[in-house]
Amino acid sequence: MKNNNTWFWLFLAPVMLALFFVVILPLIFGIYYSFTDWNGIIATRFVGIKNYINVFQSTTFLNALWFTTKFAVVAIIMENVIGLALAMLVTQKFKGRHLLRTVFFMPNLIGGLILGFIWQFIFIKAFAAVGNVIGVSALESWLATPGTGFWGMIILMSWQYAGYIMVIYIAYLENVDHELIEAAEIDGASAWQRFLHITIPMIAPAFTINVFLTLSNSFKLYDQNLSLTAGGPYDSTQMLAMDIYNTAFSQNNMALGQSKAVVFFLIVAIISLTQVYYSKKREVEV
């Protein structure tokens, strides 16, 4: 038995070492720096929790937190609803469903930065041109107001991410036992009832995974945010990651940025773990 234990740790050692050096150690350093006056070059003194007090007094941080939360809620719903709808569509029996799967998944293969620039062009140039022709002024001046900036981000993210979410739903949908559905059909259950009471509970693990993915993804979003709106107009679409980057690198306030990053880490960790815990509890075993 003792021998076994040695083997266990020996095999684990490379991974543990790597994890320690590239994840744990930087995290500890990061937390340490957040209590100092570190400017990216040297840390001269210990300032206690002063940085953390400043974090919660910083209006840009609180605005970014609020915007990110709003964005995350809407994005999670949109991405999952669209993803599930697409998955239902391409699991029907019809010609061309395999082609459609590829097409829906494709946006996910394009990098976030490039997508942002593509959509910036669509929103600013194409929307304005179309709006001009059909005389709908609501299509003009997109991304120039906070509202259109917000919806621009939502559209971009749903477009990119729904296909990815769809793939996971497909995997679970195809595993739903057809006998169950047939039995329900014979018992007289309508299509809606079959979906609500059989399909949904059977694919519950997919919800756990997808909500987790979309949640952490929305919170950590940076590249699409940078290339689509760059936080504008007037910082109204600035998300947490961008606020942290700007604090650290353009305002040169490394220690404050580091504190914001620690707070950010805690928020993401708490929300994600809570979500996984509750979703897990609701899954059904077959």
């Binding site: 107001t145 007037y234 910082d235 700007n246 353009s250």
Partner: peptide, 20 residues
């Protein structure tokens, strides 16, 4: 001051020109 021109004044000018 570091970041003042772009992140404070520049952003405030965006608000000003947008009428906010």
């Amino acid at each position: 001051p570091t970041g003042w021109g772009m992140n404070t004044l520049g952003v405030d000018i965006q608000k000003y020109t947008s009428g906010k």
